[in-house]
Each structure stands twice: as C-alpha cells, then as structure tokens.
C-alpha cells in the first residue's frame, strides 16, 4: 500500500520543528510500524537526506524504548500496544498518518521523534529502590512471598516506562508511572519498610520535574502498553496520604 506521512522534524531541543510530508509506497500490511519507518529512512539515505530519528530497542514490546504519537494517539490507534507492536494492517492504502514525538515539558525533544525521558529516571532515583546495600542479587526464595502477592506486585512492576501515560495525559502527569514504581515495592516485604519515605520523595520529585497533576481522566490506562491499572494511582494517593499523616 501507499501512505502519506506527515512527520515532525526538529534538529535539536533549541530549534523550531515542523511537520514535513513524505510518501512511502509498497508498504506490506505485515510490516511493523517501525519497519515501515526503516523503509522510509532507507530511501532518505539513498537520496542523501538526513534520516528520521526515532527511539527503539527490542522491537518486542517489552523494553519501553519506542514511543511515537501516531495520528494523535500515543503508540497509535490500538489500545495497550507499543509502537513496535503496531503493524501496518491497522492502516489502509492511501491513509495519511501523522507522526509526532511524545510531547510534555518534562520530555524535551532531542531530535525528530526522540524525546529525553531522564525525568522518569530521576523519579526512580528519588526512592524507587531498597536502600539496604545487599551486594549480589539474593536468592529469590530466601524471603517467601505467596504467589498471589508476587503476581499483584508484578502487575505494577510490569510498567516499562515508555512515557505513553504522560504523552496522552492532558496535564502531562506522570502519576501512572510513578504509582506503578511505588506500588510494586510497597506490596513486597522488602519494599514495605521504606514505603512512607519513598512515596513522599518520589511524589515530590514528580512535581519537581515539571509533570502535571493527575485529574483522573484515566486516559493513561487506555494507552498503556502494559495495561497498568489506574487503581495504582489510588494506592499511591493512599500511601501518600498515610505518609503525610504519620510523618514525624
């Protein structure tokens, strides 16, 4: 099939970007979205033009590296899907597709479709870990945790940090990401001990990085590739309120 693409091109964070039109033909419906972009980049290289830069790594939907706003939606038209797991069968011949980077003040654009998500790292650095230095990875069964409890914790831990929640949020809030990172620890014995300090510090850091507030539109859950539940946000608020009340 033949497609019209309108792609955001921007040289660096300081420069002004714009939408540029491209055409690709002979696109197979079995291609992934990123393979289609590879094909376009091949043709750009042959014409001696600068390639369109976008983030990607595993291309298996598990690393969270890829992320493009496709036709005005994070990771494209499907729900709970990463950009790399979106296939061209979701589009039809002659379609015009708009490609933009994830936009948020906390995600400055590096180039074209690539954004800097270091703000996510800094939220983790603010407390998304166990502070006791334990050396090597310990034996998994030394602290017994029931199957249900570990699965519940893993439902939160499944967050791959792609940033779609922020990109789709009208407030650019990182509440879903931050709550997932807080909750996978709070549900396990090792993480419980520092729960109060962790939630206070990570929520403060989320604010400091310039993310907006959560107004509970729940759009993030719809676009999240890992289907992280918005109930995580409720639990983060619960832990936060508890920590506020009980702090010394």
């Amino acid at each position: 099939m033949k497609l019209h693409l309108k792609i955001w091109r921007q040289l660096n964070a300081a420069s002004k970007g714009e939408m540029i039109e491209y055409e690709v033909s002979e696109v197979s419906e079995h291609m992934s979205f990123l393979e289609m972009l590879d094909m376009l980049n091949e043709s750009l290289i042959q014409r001696g033009e600068r390639v369109i830069e976008f983030d990607h790594d595993c291309r298996e939907g598990i690393c969270g590296q890829c992320g493009i706003m496709i036709n005005g939606r994070a990771h494209g038209p499907l729900t709970h899907t990463t950009t790399c797991q979106l296939h061209m069968r979701s589009f039809k011949d002659g379609d015009t597709i708009y490609l933009e980077p994830f936009r948020a003040s906390a995600f400055p654009i590096l180039r074209d479709l690539k954004v800097n998500r270091k703000s996510f790292d800094s939220i983790i650095e603010a407390g998304g870990y166990i502070s006791a230095a334990i050396g090597q990875t310990p034996e998994a069964n030394s602290i017994p945790v029931s199957y249900e409890a570990s699965e519940a914790a893993f439902d939160s831990a499944a967050c791959i940090g792609c940033g779609a929640c922020v990109a789709t949020c009208k407030n650019s809030s990182a509440a879903l990401f931050t709550s997932a990172k807080i909750n996978h620890l709070v549900q396990l014995p090792q993480g419980k001990l520092e729960a109060a300090d962790r939630v206070l510090s990570m929520v403060s850091q989320m604010d400091a990085m310039g993310f907006g507030n959560c107004s509970n539109t729940e759009a993030c859950e719809v676009e999240c590739p890992q289907d992280i539940s918005v109930l995580n946000i409720g639990r983060m608020n619960y832990e936060y309120n508890k920590a506020l009340l009980l702090r010394k």
Partner: peptide, 30 residues
C-alpha cells in the same frame, strides 16, 4: 493553581491531537 501547573507541564500542543478518545468528556472539561 493546579490548572496553571498543568498548562506549564503540557505547554507544547500536538499538531494532530486525538487524545480525547481515551477519556470521558466531563473528566477533561472540569
């Protein structure tokens, strides 16, 4: 106060925006 912060956090708008399909109208227009 909260809206002012959110506007700052979501300062650059999308050229083509269909984000509204993922959330109820009332939740976005409080």
């Amino acid at each position: 106060l909260i809206t002012r912060k959110s506007k700052k956090a979501n300062a650059s708008s999308y050229y083509y925006d269909k984000r509204k399909v993922s959330s109820p109208w009332s939740s976005r227009n409080m």
